[in-house]
């Protein structure tokens, strides 16, 4: 089965909810929850459409960033790149589902957080090193880019669409 897609089914759920259920609600508490549900339904529809692409791009960015950090560690001998190299080598066989894509992005983000702690520990000796500074900037660049991708899953669903609660 291709059609109706998840998004198409959810669109009917959202429209029926707003048209048939919400006008019948009288208490502030129920109307407040209903408003939140309407926003979250739009958010879920957006994620169905966009999240796969966002996660695959995140995974690619993280692999590139971590490889650069491993190279710097190897070249400078500042710290062993072994655990990072192992994390990069442990690539899953497939990333066919959103669940697996999310798991892989989280696994790589955990490696990045561990590396950030290692780099913090090196700051005393390496803060003046150009390569070290470049890695710090690259980590910052990754964080900014990932957040702008995340914004694609948020802003169109919520912004300018009324009270959230």
């Amino acid at each position: 089965m291709i059609h109706p897609t998840c998004r198409e089914v959810l669109a009917t759920v959202a429209a029926s909810f707003s048209r048939e259920i919400v006008p019948e609600l009288s208490s502030i508490e129920a109307r407040s929850s209903a408003a939140t549900i309407e926003h979250l339904l739009r958010h879920v529809m957006l994620r169905i459409e966009e999240e796969g692409e966002v996660l695959m791009r995140d995974i690619a960015r993280l692999r590139t960033l971590l490889a650069h950090i491993a190279d710097w560690m190897e070249q400078t001998g500042a710290v062993s790149p072994e655990s990072l190299s192992t994390a990069l080598a442990n690539e899953p066989a497939d990333l066919w589902t959103l669940q697996r894509q999310g798991d892989e992005a989280l696994r790589l983000r955990a490696s990045l957080v561990a590396v950030q702690a290692q780099l913090d520990g090196l700051a005393g000796d390496w803060a003046g090193n150009e390569g070290y500074q470049a890695l710090r900037r690259e980590i910052g660049g990754y964080i900014g880019a990932q957040l702008m991708d995340e914004a694609r899953l948020i802003a169109p669903a919520f912004s300018g669409r009324g009270p959230r609660r």
């Binding site: 958010h43 959230r164 609660r165």
Partner: peptide
């Protein structure tokens, strides 16, 4: 969990 907690974990957290 409440829908308001879901909202907090998505839009507000972002």
């Amino acid at each position: 969990a409440t829908v308001r907690q879901s909202w907090t974990a998505t839009e507000v957290q972002h």
